[in-house]
Design a protein around this nucleic acid. Sequence first.
DNA 1: TCCCCTCATATGTTTAAACATATTTTTCAT
DNA 2: ATGAAAAATATGTTTAAACATATGAGGGGA
Lengths: 224, 224
Amino acid sequence: MMKRFAAIRDEMLRRINDGDWPVGHELPTEPQLAAEFGVARGTVRRAMDALSEQGLVERRKRAGTRVAARQAHASRMSIPIVRHGIEARGDTYGYRLLDRRISKADTAFGGPAGMLHVECLHLANNVPFQLEERQISLDSLPESAEADFSQQSPNEWLVSLIPATDVETTLRADGASDHVAERLALSPGAPIFVLERRTFLNGEALTQVRMSHPASLFSITTRN
Amino acid sequence: MMKRFAAIRDEMLRRINDGDWPVGHELPTEPQLAAEFGVARGTVRRAMDALSEQGLVERRKRAGTRVAARQAHASRMSIPIVRHGIEARGDTYGYRLLDRRISKADTAFGGPAGMLHVECLHLANNVPFQLEERQISLDSLPESAEADFSQQSPNEWLVSLIPATDVETTLRADGASDHVAERLALSPGAPIFVLERRTFLNGEALTQVRMSHPASLFSITTRN
DNA sequence: TCCCCTCATATGTTTAAACATATTTTTCAT
DNA sequence: ATGAAAAATATGTTTAAACATATGAGGGGA
């Protein structure tokens, strides 16, 4: 037995898709729809919240609800921890710490205590899969200076205690620099998939990372 | 004045992040939390729904709610219609239809009526920005055979009437093939960012598209 | 005509109560 | 001890009612 709010959501979805409610159309108010479907206002509201969440309608107090112009394809993207992703495919995971050093405050990212730079390599079946170049703010995470990254990657270490409030992720393609090419055993200029992430806690920078993958070994797929 | 459900959500978030509620920990029941925070069960429930939506907790009837192991970074990604993206940056949008042909059923994608293949180029400031290679199922969308794609891209034409229920999107990097390199005015092997999307209505294939961009011109950024 | 104030109203938040549903736990017969 | 039936219980859905809040609409004065 389908939940009533789901049935109402789907019926409204149908009206939008079939053009009964074209883009820009103002839908009936919540009390009107509640009367039409014979349910309480709260049930209609839950259905409308789902459509609003999906970006199909726009709601404003007093102004009502209108069918939104779909101007973007939105979907939920999931980026697994690199070790889990590799093991989930049945491959053997390998890890190597390449470099670790501390620099005094230099860039815009981070504060006066300086940054911890860590560079490490994740391998799948002994083939380089991801080069992780990470910077950690020693102002926000001073305990990272004591952490031993020779066995556990900063990625996993951070996830276990990360109190992030804001995360900014950028996906892009690039040609491998000489440095990256050497680390990933590619020729310079070879296509790589780059994932950059910056993490903040209440506006304060915690860590930023660039993860570079050989293009042939990496892709992201989302459904819905 | 912060909404109460938001304050409760943030307090629970804090308990998870600070380790008061470690991974695997079973949280108090809704009535218990309602009593603790001095609100109705529905308000606690709304806060917990938000955490559940975010994947921070897992809920099961009768079994209760526990802190989930964060095994992936999930975030919402938005891919704008290419023309809007270009115009939003203040650049001049250009469009050219390169090829259009119909093939009888050949691939796994599509049905017996065959496929419409459309190839077109999107330009930003007269520089090739995206090569769109699209296939449309003539079984599901026979009216596409009549559409004139010389002025409007299939992308935009489809968005205006798309009743999709399922969308699968793949992001990857690649080296430009000879064909793509020529279309995008790159040298063969140059890094490109590829976006592939397949769209279904109730399990029936509607359209699939490969969108290739020069790596230097394209990236996707998400916040949260 | 134009601007500001007031009022109306659609959405947003919260409460309380009842019932549904999926599982776990307990009971009890074998 | 074992397994099936019964009870217990945490989450899930729905209702109804009250109040909060943003903002569109209309009226009045300069």
